[in-house]
Design a protein around this nucleic acid. Structure first.
Length: 556
RNA sequence: GCCUCCGUAGCUCAGUGGAUAGAGCAACGGCCUUCUAAUCCGUCGGUCGCAGGUUCGAAUCCUGCCGGAGGCACCA
């Protein structure tokens, strides 16, 4: 029996009892969720449903629990059931019923843990969105890791997800970037407001290779040269960002150009920004004041109204944001998720207001998730960019797996300071190796089992009775619920924490229960059945690591 | 000043209103004749920032205060 099947069974029982008391309160599976008790004496699974419903149906919680227990004992697969404390229902499965999980995991393979709890949802998930005017650095890494893992977790729960990177390739920062690189190309002193960093010089060298005529052109037509240098530097930098992200195992479905929002259609139709403002004007939220065009974001709780077009006629960055939001609407996404750093939390109000002004439901169609920043102690400074630590340097120093894992291990809203030496260490104070080692161990057992002539010709789940086996099976049973919960809460760190518990349960089982018999002991069905359990543990470790974008090596 | 987030063991941190608040590290002590000991077992460790409130029950929800981080542009 799975926890979900237990919940369903309890819901049916409770619904009966509630109806018998003349109440028409509806009972859903949600109401009878079972959880894994911290204390093993409390059984395999526990429910607090009786306490939650007692008051609503005018019953004593313990009495209601007793009635549930009496009927739960009739269910095939439940070995024990009892009432404890103020009205907890503690359930224990019989070994065969619990052990079935091992077979189910092996049979479902990569699909084990996937669900349809978010089926039918079309989600746009935007993250990183760093300016293409320089390499990705420390500040972007947490969102890259968290965003990519969140996308994977949401997909595992059945949602349709488009991960998206918004490229700020328009506006004054790009011009500043262009002037900085042009100066490097021409060997001139950097302009006063130039981007700092050695990477500008490198970009200059690359651009000069790409455009061998550029120095000559600059002498005759500097404006034209600036334009070409800016474009070449942009494309080069963007390509490097994409490369870095690939090395970090982070994938975007869409790279969306801000510039495209400023461009008129080929038939001369207005730009997306221009038509976005018109559309919001039709909704009644756009007004003019002091030569500027404003949007009334205060109508949706923002603390001040925002400007779309400045007095000088230029669009603000926010106007592009609004047009971008409408683009997401037009492309048919339901929920639009923004992953932003804490330094952008002032954006919540205005982004939400745009959603509202555009006619979306600000409760369900937009989520702005704010995360705290990371700081890394003991990190060496980048060779290339002064005091900015680049993602590429972090990858070289720490490796993608360790960095992804450590960044995904903590909730986004908790401030995080990493110790570089600890992340890098190949010892047991490094959870990523603890989990990967557990997986490698399952593979080693597989190899040795094959050499010892142990196959999977028998599966006798009722033999899996050792305490460490019950615990390991319990963990395997929890996994689908963990994935579903992580998806619903947008908290991929729950996967990492679960994997650490699973790895611990596996290691303890390995220590106590041999798959390969010792000495002269003959191979029995117990060993064959344990091989199934070993494979199941490896499969779930692999599935979970994949959701975090971390590899599962067969040997360490 | 206003807004958001955070405050849990010496350190880094988990903890979706439930039972005696957990893990890893650090410290101390055990287990290699073993399917790889990167594992495992034990001991030590707590005013869940403080004070009220809500209820059968609060680390968790509400209010106030203290402390920390960040944010409050016709910048991008």
């Amino acid at each position: 029996m799975t926890p979900q099947e237990l919940s369903q069974a309890l819901a049916a029982i409770l619904a009966d009892l509630v109806a018998a008391r003349g109440s028409d309160i509806e009972v859903t599976e949600q109401d009878t969720q079972v959880e894994r008790p911290k204390n093993r004496d409390h059984g395999d699974w526990a429910s607090n449903a009786a306490m939650k419903f007692a008051k609503r149906v005018g019953a004593n919680p313990r009495e209601l629990a007793e009635e549930i227990v009496a009927r739960a004992l009739q269910i095939d697969g439940i070995a024990h059931a009892e009432v404890a404390g103020p009205g907890f229902i503690n359930l224990t499965l019989d070994a065969a019923s619990a052990g079935e999980t091992a077979r189910r995991v092996v049979e479902q393979g990569e699909r084990y843990g996937r669900s349809d709890v978010l089926a039918g949802q079309s989600i746009n998930l935007e993250f990183v969105s760093a300016n293409p005017t320089g390499p990705l650095h420390m500040g972007h890494t947490r969102w890259a890791a968290l965003g990519d893992s969140t996308a994977r977790v949401l997909r595992a729960a059945g949602a349709q997800v488009t991960s998206e990177y918004y490229i700020n390739d328009a506006g004054s920062q790009m011009n500043k970037f262009g002037r900085s690189v042009l100066a490097a190309v021409l060997g001139e002193d950097a302009p006063e407001d130039a981007y700092p960093g050695e990477y500008i010089q490198e970009l200059g060298r690359k651009v000069r290779e790409q455009l061998p005529y550029i120095v000559e052109l600059a002498a005759s037509d500097r404006a034209q040269a600036l334009e070409e240098v800016q474009e070449a530097a942009y494309q080069t930098q963007l390509a490097e960002i994409k490369d870095s992200l690939e090395r970090f195992n982070v994938h975007f479905d869409v790279y969306f150009s801000e510039r495209s929002l400023h461009e008129a259609g080929p038939d001369g139709s207005p730009s997306p920004i221009s038509s976005a403002i018109d559309r919001l004007r039709e909704q009644g939220y756009v007004f003019e004041e002091d030569d500027a065009i404003w949007v009334r974001t205060t109508a949706f709780g923002d603390d001040k109204d925002r400007v779309f077009t400045r007095g000088n006629g230029v669009y603000t960055y926010f106007a592009a944001d609004a047009a971008y939001y409408l683009s997401k609407m037009d492309r048919g996404f339901g929920e639009k998720i923004y992953l932003l750093g804490a330094d952008h939390h002032g954006y919540i109000g205005r982004l939400t207001a745009i959603a509202g002004a555009a006619g979306d439901n600000i409760e369900t169609d937009i989520s702005v998730l704010i995360g705290q920043l990371v700081n890394l102690n003991g990190a060496r400074l980048s060779k290339r960019a002064g005091n900015i630590i680049e993602l590429d340097d972090l990858l070289e120093w720490l490796g993608s797996d360790a960095l992804r894992y450590w960044l995904a291990r903590y909730p986004a809203d908790s401030p995080l300071s990493l110790d570089g030496e600890k992340v890098r260490s190949r010892t047991n104070d490094n959870p990523v190796f603890y989990v990967q080692y557990a997986h490698a161990r399952t593979c080693a057992v597989d190899r040795n089992a094959e050499a010892a002539g142990i196959d999977r010709s028998a599966f006798a789940p009722e033999l899996l009775t050792h305490a460490t086996e019950t615990e390991l099976l319990g963990k395997l049973q929890q996994y689908p619920g963990i994935v579903a919960g992580a998806a619903e809460l947008r908290e991929p760190h729950r996967i990492a924490r679960f994997l650490e518990e699973l790895a611990g349960a596996y290691h303890r089982w390995y220590d106590n229960c041999r798959v390969i018999p010792l000495g002269e002991e003959p191979v029995a069905d117990l060993h064959r059945t344990r091989l199934w359990l070993n494979d199941a543990a490896g499969q779930v470790l692999r599935n979970g690591l994949d959701l975090l974008g971390v590899s599962a090596p067969e040997r360490l």
